[in-house]
Amino acid sequence: MSKITRRKFLAASAAGGTAIMMAPTKKAFAAGSFEGFPDGMGVLVDLTRCVGCRTCEAACNKEQQLPEPAKPFDDYSVFDEIHHGQKRRTTDKAYTIVNRYELKDTEEPLYRKIQCNHCNEPACLTSCFVNAYKKTPEGAVIYDSHVCVGCRNCMIACPFHIPAYTYHSVLNPVIKKCIFCYDTRLKEGKPPACVESCPQQVMTFGKRKDLMKIAHERIKKNPGKYVDHVYGEKEVGGTGWFYISNAPFEEAGFDVHLPKKPIIDNVKDFLAIVPVVLTVWPALFTGFHLLATKGKSHGHGDDHSHDEQGGH
């Protein structure tokens, strides 16, 4: 009996495809210790300077060869647009958009540019089951739409609601989002189109770590002007694009409840049990089987022939 059960036991572990199923954990832990490339580039966005001219939107549209929008870029009525009670968001036709927020304490509204934040440990990347995303050493989070299956898990995962999907394409629907102008500019060390186009110099392009210093200096040198927080320094493990603002970030529509840790950290508890289940379960349940069937050649009223027991 023991011989046969050992074979069964091995068969069971093999059927579990141990090797393959173990893979997720290793990779995830490797990804977990990753904190962005040291020389990755980033962009500091100073919200106090933005006047809501939408020049960056137009520049992005041109650079990324996106379709012409429904309303021209000098139409400011878009700031009043509300869909489902929400302000505008990035879409498959607009990788960046500017929204206006009314503040509590001042008459002056605040404008905020939204695009992919190029996270250090992107949730979109870690959630994608075909590994379509890539964080480049230059700091951009890009993706390969040729492998995208269209599960849209990355849209679920992105804490900033960035990736959009070309739902209306029949044969080749894909994810669309800001790619830091990687192909056309960043690769060559040039600043992205939107950054360059801005007449107010809202955005500063440079190495992330240098920009972070500048951000803190700017806050320190202008007491009372900024809230003392760099949004994106710590949020979800740090982002490549980050913001300083004169108004509390929640008033500018930022999610201030995001965890400081990367999104993938939430998933690690689960991934950690995977190898445990894979190694312990086969032994455990084969053991149960032996105990439960010991001394019993056939169950009650059972007339299926039970080969595993018939063998001894």
Binding site: C128, V147, C148, S169
Partner: peptide
């Protein structure tokens, strides 16, 4: 799925093993 004909990609073509969906 947007592109159901690529259903087998995570199995045979492009692996994202850190993903729960994988």
């Amino acid at each position: 799925l947007g592109q159901p004909w690529r259903l087998s990609y995570p199995m045979v073509y492009s692996f994202g093993p850190a993903a729960v969906l994988f």
